[in-house]
């Protein structure tokens, strides 16, 4: 089921990139998609999960919104005449509640593109994420911000 969706999507993307939607070209795209689906058949087990799809879409929406907010906020800091007052850089240890490698990777990348935070490193036992904060108010605020925003959504996606 997921493989069929993958083949269809890849065929449409192929047609769009090559710039012609005639049936023969679509068929070629579907053929190439089939090869890809065959190569990936191990990880395509299971059915399309509507709940996960919705979680992914909601995560994407939140991410795009936060990305714009973060760019605007960094710009405001850059343009402030007194840089020293606007900045309060710190490295804080964020306790991870998500455990798998995939979740940590996704969360770390999301954190980097969100307001005022940049992930630096993960501790060896995968329990702590070290995050650089551009303008720290309090440590608890920064941690609660990530935990209630992205971490909750990521956990929902992989639940």
């Amino acid at each position: 089921m997921r493989a069929a969706l993958l083949v269809l999507t890849l065929a449409l993307i192929w047609a769009a990139i090559t710039g012609s939607f005639n049936p023969l070209n679509l068929l070629l795209g579907a053929g190439l998609g089939l090869v890809v689906a065959l190569l990936l058949r191990q990880s395509l087990q299971g059915r399309i999960n509507l709940r996960r799809l919705r979680a992914a879409l909601s995560l994407l929406g939140l991410f795009l919104w936060e990305l714009m907010v973060s760019a605007v906020r960094v710009s405001i800091i850059v343009l402030s005449p007194n840089l020293k007052a606007a900045l309060n850089p710190a490295i804080i240890a964020f306790p991870l509640t998500v455990k798998s490698d995939a979740e940590i990777t996704l969360l770390a990348n999301l954190i980097t593109l969100t307001p005022g935070t940049l992930s630096i490193d993960v501790s060896e036992d995968r329990s702590t994420l070290y995050v650089h904060v551009l303008a720290l108010t309090t440590r608890e605020d920064a941690i609660a911000d990530i935990a209630n925003g992205f971490e909750a959504k990521v956990r929902e996606l992989y639940a």
Binding site: A71, L83, P89, I91, L134
Partner: peptide, 24 residues
């Protein structure tokens, strides 16, 4: 703004914020 930030901000990690967010 990203390039101004990379020039103005005081140290490497803060510059990285400007380059990675505003630049992207």
């Amino acid at each position: 703004l990203a390039s101004v930030g990379v020039l103005r901000l005081p140290d490497l990690l803060t510059r990285m914020h400007a380059a990675s967010k505003a630049g992207a």
